[in-house]
Amino acid sequence: MICQHLKESGDPEPQSRYADGCPQCVAAGFDDWVHLRLCLTCGVVACCDSSPRQHMSAHHAESGHPVMRSFEPGETWRWCFDDEQLG
């Protein structure tokens, strides 16, 4: 059964691309991010947990925003941090 956070988040398509990578990594002078994720609450784009600095997980920890989605071309999956559920 899909969690309420995933039901409420919808599935918006990302509207722009971050060709230069994770904005937080780039601002700090790093270029070793792996994949990008999009917060479905506020639109923040950040790197994934396979990246050294795991900015999207840090964003969730700081903001409490529950759902993110892949920002990678051709990927549409979403993840609820609160319920640890893929949607």
Rank of each mutant, 00 (worst) to 15 (best):
W77C: 06
L6T: 03
Q15V: 11
C80E: 06
A28C: 04
H35C: 04
H60V: 13
D32T: 11
V45P: 00
C22D: 12
C47Q: 03
G87P: 07
A61V: 10
K7D: 00
C25H: 06
F81W: 15
H5M: 05
I2E: 14
S70T: 13
H5E: 02
C22A: 02
D11I: 01
S51Y: 02
D83H: 15
G87D: 11
A27N: 05
T76C: 14
R53Q: 11
R17W: 09
C48S: 15
C48V: 05
C39L: 02
A19R: 11
M1K: 12
L86Y: 12
C22P: 05
R17Q: 13
R17A: 13
L36T: 03
T41A: 11
G10S: 01
L86D: 12
E13L: 05
H65D: 12
T41H: 02
A58H: 04
P14Y: 03
C42W: 08
R78A: 14
P12M: 06
D32E: 09
C42M: 01
L86R: 12
E8F: 00
W77I: 01
V45N: 02
Y18D: 12
R69F: 05
F71N: 15
C3A: 08
V67T: 10
H59W: 08
D49W: 00
V44I: 14
S70C: 13
A58W: 00
C22H: 00
G43V: 04
A46C: 03
S57W: 04
S70W: 06
I2T: 14
P23M: 09
G74S: 14
D82W: 04
P66Y: 04
R78H: 09
Q4R: 13
T41E: 15
P23L: 05
D83L: 04
Y18R: 04
H5Q: 01
K7E: 07
E8T: 08
E75P: 05
G10A: 07
Q54M: 12
G87E: 10
H35Q: 09
L40V: 03
D82C: 07
S57T: 15
S9K: 04
R53D: 05
L6R: 06
G64K: 03
R69P: 05
Q15M: 09
F30R: 08
H35G: 07
E84M: 14
C39V: 11
I2G: 00
P23C: 08
R69Q: 13
S57H: 07
Q24D: 13
C42P: 02
P23Y: 07
H55V: 01
M1T: 14
C47M: 09
S9G: 02
D82Q: 14
P12Y: 00
G43H: 04
M56R: 01
P52S: 06
D82I: 09
M56A: 03
I2F: 00
